[in-house]
């Protein structure tokens, strides 16, 4: 029996008191030896910051395994304490920030290997359905070159919107919702 999905609606501006009852921006403890910071700002089509968005991330652990029953590769270690999920609001400067670990590479279609990446969802007032994108890492040039999803984005300028920059000890990933600099979003 096939059923049509319930349509999406905007998250609106008034979600914080419900969705941020706990801090979900730290996927690992601050003292974690392999902790990395991933941060950025969100901009609208006029280049103005978006101070009322919610960003969620989903990623594999450092070994490249997802904490999910569909990822049943027993030869890749699972870390029960690493959920791989994070959620952060943008602040009054349009900034979001996560503390996590760099994910390992995960398999792609047809025997390929995907470059290490973090999946991102963006929700905001004025955004009628979830925007999905991916954060790749600037120090993984070779893995990125062979990544099938990056390769599917033909234009190198567009592809570059999916790669974070190294900046001040953090990985910086700005998101542009619209306009010339628009980030690539995927039809997930």
């Amino acid at each position: 029996m096939s059923m049509e999905p319930t349509p999406s609606q905007t998250i609106g501006p008034f979600f914080h008191y419900a969705l941020f009852t706990e801090d979900l921006s730290e996927l690992v403890a601050p003292g974690h030896p392999d902790a990395i910071r991933v941060e950025g700002k969100i901009f609208d089509g006029a280049g103005d910051i978006v101070p009322d968005a919610m960003v969620e991330i989903w990623q594999a652990n450092a070994a490249g395994r997802y904490n999910h029953p569909e990822d049943d590769r027993e030869d890749v270690p699972l870390d029960e304490n690493f959920l791989g999920f994070g959620r952060a609001p943008t602040d009054e400067n349009g900034s979001f920030s996560f503390l996590t670990v760099k994910p390992g590479a995960v398999p792609g279609p047809d025997g390929s290997l995907q470059g290490p990446h973090i999946l991102v969802s963006v929700f905001a007032r004025g955004v009628l359905k979830r925007l999905a994108t991916r954060i790749y890492f600037p120090d993984e040039e070779e893995a990125n070159e062979h990544d099938p999803v990056l390769a599917s984005v033909g234009d190198p300028d567009l592809r570059s919107t999916l790669v974070a920059r190294s900046e001040g000890g953090a990985f910086r990933f700005d998101i542009h919702l619209r306009g010339e600099k628009q980030t690539v979003f995927f039809d997930v």
Binding site: G45, G126, V127, L128, S152, L177, R178, G179, Q182
Partner: peptide, 13 residues
């Protein structure tokens, strides 16, 4: 939506 809706097509993957 006028300033926040994407204006490039979604990438298919």
């Amino acid at each position: 939506t006028r300033l926040r809706a994407l204006d490039k097509p979604l990438a298919i993957q």
